[in-house]
Every structure is written in structure tokens, then in C-alpha cells.
Write a protein that binds this DNA or RNA. Structure first.
Lengths: 254, 254
DNA sequence: AAGTGGTCTAGACCACTGT
DNA sequence: CAGTGGTCTAGACCACTTC
């Protein structure tokens, strides 16, 4: 696995290729340590700077993780939470468990919702105002943890006119969560609309979710719509991509 | 916007912060050129290496794009194709247009499917074999282009037993595409299951989709299931994340 | 030819981890 | 303390783009 100096491919890329191949083949297993920088310097006959650039490529690809004072290690694959489109059924609500909680428990992991302060009534951005048809909403911001790791940021907006009816910001709760509370107050849910976009984490999101800069996240926006056609909840989550998969089942239609 | 050398924050990160702020505020608009490396050297009082590292951060975040001999530019946001879960309705098929084609035309973009060779009958990986309940399948591999840009890789697997019935690998076609062909041969479709995972592009995918290394992609796996409960198509696509959004609408259920 | 970004070397100093 | 990764400087050579 020597460097081909006649090749057009940059040296650092060849080093990354060689190491990537060792990882993919299992020669360096998940959790195992890669050669140290000085070992790479010897092996490939380059300066430490160039060896580091090779390592940086793998880190950027999310394959490895550097630990100061210890070395560079192959990333362990994280447990992946399934998010399913049948998670909002009334029977699931009646069982009392949130969808995320149930999924986490099925994987043998503990679960936690960290509220980022009290429910506030705020002026919402245009995009949300358009969706809910009014300019103000009660918003609850949370950070979800599963297995001791932050997995997603979740903001829930309830239109102000609905909030006064159901007492959300006043702190009223029922076992079925926000959707239970809505249905208990005459807003029977008719349908949901979810829109998913994957993108790279902003620096702020990366910090909040303990991700490396530019790691992929999934942004999910949900509209919960009642039988009167009103959007009674606008839900916005940003989830670490490598900890979530999204499953949708739907019927063939005419 | 000078560098704070007393801060813990590395100099290159401070440079990235300053430039990111200019981009977010619109001071440097999409498509506009950032200061050249030598200008950054002057402005921030660092070496070119450090200035480059600052630029590298933004590039990794997907905010900018370097063009050799020209400069570094703020990325223009790409047109985003909506992928909808009602795209497989029979009425849409009757209209003769594929879902992607219709979406592209709505955006005023041209569309193209580039086949990566003939339909082949192959032994499939375990995961697919398990899904379709047999070890062999006819596979068609495509690369889709929209607006002159590759947008996704799409592999379609038809179980071998179904293939012989409907003549897929033999080249038979009907206006409604593969789903039309299936339904014309007694495999009336009952439901679909789609699973989405976002992750970073592999180097091979990055090349095929003209993405920078480690850019996010969305991997979508679809099972098309007929009324007998048989998976009659296993579809696997890898799409450039910044060119797609996925929209699912579904009813509240009991 | 001048200006741009891309790669690489050589060496310094620092911060963190484990012994 | 030795070994690890993290940051930064200084300067060289190269490839590409425009004039």
C-alpha cells in the first residue's frame, strides 16, 4: 500500500483510500484504533501534515473519530431509532407511551425529554404563520435523549387560538400527550403531513446534538390537521441522521 | 471582525465564523465571490494556510464552493424536487408520466433517465433476498438527471419469479411503467413501504452524483407489495439530499 | 503574465490522556 | 513523563482561469 507519486490522485487522498479500505474490509474493526499520525508518517513517507489530511478525509466522511491524547478510532455504529408513520394511532396513544419512548425501550435504551424552558407564546416566523393561519403560537422546545445521547431537537407550535381552548401553555396535560389533549377538546385529528429534508447540521445544531461539524441531520416538519381542516400543531424536529430511520407505509391508491 | 487571540476558539474557526456571518446576513449573496485567500491573509493577519482552513470549514458545511483559478463562491441553492407518497396512484400512472418527470416539468426543468446497462438477472444481497423472498432478481440500474444535474441513483429489483411472468427483463413495457406492467399481469398493488435514512455519500456515490465528498444523501428503500402480500419490487435509491424533499401525507388512524 | 485555488514540506508550540 | 492529536507559521511548487 505505497504511495503512487506518478498518479494524479493527491497523496493525502491515497492515504485516505488505503485506510478506508482497511476499515471497510474489517482489518480495522469498529472501535479499533487507527495507526497514529507518526506511524502514518513512517509508513507512507510523508510529513505529519499530509498524514493528518488523509485522516481528516475519513473524519469528514464520518468513518472515524479522533480522541485527544488517545488516537483515532473507527466509529461504532449507533443504535438507530425507527420513526414510523403509524406512531400517532389512537390506540398507541391510549397505551400511554410516546412513540419515541416505545421505540427506545424496544432497543433497551433509556429515554429522556429535556425541555428548553417553559411553553411560551411567541410571534412565529412567516413560514409557520402561513401554515397555521395565524401569527402567534404557543411553543415548547425540547431536546430528546436516547441512551445517554442527544438524538433530536423538537419544537412544537400550537396556534394561539387553539392554545387558549386546550390550556396547553397553562400546563394542562392528559395521558395521550398533546394529541390526546387536542382530541379531548373537540379537535379530532384527521390527517398528518410530514416533510423531510436531509442537510448538514448548522454549527449550533452540531453542538446541541453532539455531532461533528457538517454531519447530516434530518429536518422533519409535521402538520397535524383536524377534521375542520385546521393545522392544530406545527412540529419541527432536527434529528441526528445516523440515529434515525424513517418508515412510511401507505396503501396503493386509485 | 478582528481575531481574538485570547479566545479558546481557534483562529481558523473565528475566520469561518466571520465569513459565515457575512453569508447568512446576505452581505455576501448566493453566487457571489468570497474574499480571496490573499485578501483573507491581509484582513485577519494570518498565514495562507490558516485562511484556507477557515474556508475549508465553510466548504465542508456546504455553504461555499471553490472554483480553481476563479475564487470561492457562495453556493446557489439548488432547485428541490418534492417526492410525494401519492406519486404512485393509478390515475397518475394513467396520465402516462412518471412522478419524477412530472415534478421536474413543474419546476421547468428537463429530465432524463440514464440506464447503466441492460436489465440483468442476478443473485441479490441477503437483505434484498429476505425482502423479496427469493435469491434472484432482475435488476435495472439507473441514474436520474434533472436540469442537467445528476440527482439520484435508482436500482429496481423484480423477483425472478415475477420477472418471468411479466417479461420485464425481456424488455416488455407498458405506458404506466413497471407498476403498470405488474398490474397488467395480475399483480394488483396493495401497499408500499418506504424507509429513509440520511447519511454521508460514499466516495463512489459522491462521484456519480457530482457531490463533494461526505455531502449528505438520502437512501430510500421501497417495497411494493401486491394484494397477495408478495413484495413484487424492491427499489433502492440514493439521492442528493440538497435536491430532494420528501412529503408524506397520511390519515390519523385508530 | 497575473491572480486564483490545490498540494506538500518542515518545524514549532499547545492540550489532553495514561502510566 | 511519553505519546497522542490540534493549531499555526513560512514558504515552495503546481494547475487552472482570465486577460
Amino acid at each position: 500500500m505505497a504511495i503512487d507519486h506518478t498518479s494524479d490522485r493527491p497523496v493525502f487522498a491515497q492515504i485516505a483510500d488505503a485506510l478506508r479500505q482497511r476499515i471497510r474490509s474489517g482489518a480495522i474493526a469498529p472501535g479499533a484504533k487507527l495507526p497514529s499520525e507518526s506511524e502514518l508518517v513512517e509508513e507512507f513517507g510523508v510529513t505529519r501534515t499530509t498524514a493528518r489530511r488523509g485522516l481528516a478525509v475519513l473524519q469528514q466522511e464520518g468513518l472515524t473519530e479522533a480522541r485527544r491524547g488517545l488516537g483515532v478510532f473507527v466509529r461504532e455504529t449507533a443504535p438507530v431509532i425507527a420513526v414510523r408513520n403509524n406512531r400517532f394511532s389512537r390506540s398507541a396513544r391510549a397505551a400511554g407511551k410516546g412513540a419515541l419512548a416505545a421505540e427506545a425501550e424496544a432497543l433497551g435504551l433509556d429515554w429522556q425529554s429535556e425541555e428548553q424552558g417553559p411553553v411560551e407564546i411567541v410571534d412565529v416566523p412567516d413560514e409557520i404563520a402561513q401554515a397555521i393561519g395565524e401569527p402567534r403560537a404557543a411553543v415548547k422546545r425540547r431536546r430528546m435523549w436516547v441512551g445517554g445521547v442527544p438524538t433530536q431537537l423538537a419544537d412544537s407550535y400550537i396556534p394561539a387560538s387553539v392554545d387558549v381552548e386546550i390550556g396547553y401553555s397553562a400546563g394542562l396535560t392528559v395521558p395521550g400527550g398533546i394529541y390526546g389533549l387536542l382530541e379531548a377538546n373537540g379537535h379530532r385529528l384527521d390527517r398528518f403531513r410530514e416533510e423531510l429534508v436531509a442537510r448538514q447540521a448548522s454549527p449550533e445544531e452540531a453542538v446541541a446534538l453532539h455531532l461533528s461539524n457538517g454531519a447530516p441531520v434530518v429536518s422533519l416538519v409535521r402538520h397535524a390537521i383536524d377534521e375542520a381542516g385546521k393545522v392544530v400543531e406545527y412540529f419541527d424536529s432536527v434529528a441526528a441522521a445516523d440515529r434515525h430511520r424513517y418508515v412510511y407505509e401507505f396503501k396503493a391508491t386509485d
